[in-house]
Design a protein around this nucleic acid. Sequence first.
DNA 1: CGTTTTTTTTGACCGAGGTCAAGGCCCCCA
DNA 2: TGGGGGCCTTGACCTCGGTCAAAAAAAACG
Lengths: 223, 223
Amino acid sequence: MLSSIHSRAVTIRPRRYQKLAVACEADEVVYFVRAGALALSAGLPNGRRQILSILYPGDVFRSALTPSPALTGLSAVTASAEVWRLRWPTFEALAAGDSALQQLFDSLITDQAARLAMHIAIIGSLGADERVASFLVEIALRLGAPVAGGIAFEIPLTRTDIADYLALNADTVSRIMSRLRAKGVLAQSGRSLMICRDMKALESQSPFSAALQQICARARRAR
Amino acid sequence: MLSSIHSRAVTIRPRRYQKLAVACEADEVVYFVRAGALALSAGLPNGRRQILSILYPGDVFRSALTPSPALTGLSAVTASAEVWRLRWPTFEALAAGDSALQQLFDSLITDQAARLAMHIAIIGSLGADERVASFLVEIALRLGAPVAGGIAFEIPLTRTDIADYLALNADTVSRIMSRLRAKGVLAQSGRSLMICRDMKALESQSPFSAALQQICARARRAR
DNA sequence: CGTTTTTTTTGACCGAGGTCAAGGCCCCCA
DNA sequence: TGGGGGCCTTGACCTCGGTCAAAAAAAACG
C-alpha cells in the first residue's frame, strides 16, 4: 500500500523550519510523514506563534485541517525530515481503488483530530509543570526506547518550540525541566537527548498520561 | 439526504447538561446536531473542566474524535436541543450507497478538525480580552441576526461554560464583558441576549476574526 | 582546537488573570 | 406576584508564569 503511494508522490526532505506548501495550484495537498517531525503552527501579527500539532513518522496531513492558509504553516522541526507529497485528486484516485488505504487514511485523520482535542485539554486545563510532564510523556511514548536505567528519547524540538507547543515561554520550560533534573526524574546529555529515570513519577505529574497512552496505542494499531 | 439519515436515526432531545453516550455496545456512534448546541468537554480529577468544541446545528460528531471516552463527554449546553443518533455501522452502510453523503460527512469532519486547530490557536496565543472577543465573533457569525443598530444573538452558554471553553474563569469573562458593555460595543438584555452595536470594533479585538469567518463560511457551504 | 554563534539556564522583578467573598440581578415556579 | 435559588457582577488580594537581562553551556565552523 505504501509503495503505491510512494510511486505517485513527490519525496521532500525539508531542513529545519523549512515551510511546506499547503496548497498546490488550488489543489488540496496530502503529506505522509516518513521521518523526522513536522509542526503545524499558527502565527500572529505580533510575532507570537502557536504550534497546533506535531506530526511524527506515520502521520498524515491534509490541508483541509488547516483553519486558514494565511495564518497557519507546516514546517519541519527536526534538523532533517522526509515527507511524501501528493495532490488531493491524485490521492483520491488511489484511495478509490483501495478500500484498505481509504480506511487507513480515515483513521489517521480522526486520530489527528483526537490529538488536537487532547492538546486543547492540555493547554486549557493544566498548569505549566503538568503541561511539560504531558509533553515528555507524549515524546517518550512516540520516540522512547528502553535503556539501562530508564527510557531514552531525543526531543526533536528546541525549548522555544516546546514552549510554543505548550503555550508557555522558553524560560519557563527550561526552569521546569531543570527542576525535573534536580528531582532525578530526568537525566540529560547534550541538548536534546534525555533519559527518563522514573517514568512512573513523570506519568503521575500528567493528569492525562492514560489518555496519551490510549491515543498513541491507537496510532500504532492503525499504522 | 437528510431524510434518509433521519429515518434510520434515533432522535434525542437532551436537556441542559444531559450527557450523550459516545459509544453504544462497543460500536462507535455518530450524532447529527439539529437544534441547540452541544459541548465536547474533558473533565479533570480535580474538578476542572475544559470544553474542547462547541457543536452547532448542522455539525456532526463521531466518537473517534474523542481522545478517551473516560475523560471526555458530550452534552447539551442549551436548555434544550435535538440530535439524531446512529450507530457507526448503520451510518457506514448508508454512506456506502450515497457518495454525496460521504463527501458531506468528510467535509464536516475535517471542518471539525480545523475548528479544533483554531481553538488551540485562540487559547494558546491570545490574552483574555482577545479570547472573549473571538468567542463573541464566533457566536455572532453562527447565530447572529442583523437588527436595527447591530447584530443580535443569544449566547447559548452560561458564563462558566464560556470560561471553560476559553480556558479562563467565569469572573474574568464577566469582567471583560462588562468592559465591552461600558465601551458601548455590546448591549445586553437579560442574561443571554446580546446585541453587538459595533461589529468592527469587536472584530478588531480578535486577531483571528478573518480566520473565523473563513471557517464559518466553509461550514455554511458544506451544509 | 579555539572562536563565534546560538541555545539554554538562572535570577530578579512584574503583571495578567485566578481566587475568594459579598452582594445584586434574573428566572422559575408556586 | 413574590419568594427562592442559581447566575452574574464586582472588588481586594495573591499567585503563577511572563519578561528582561546576563551568564553559561552546546553546537557550528573554520
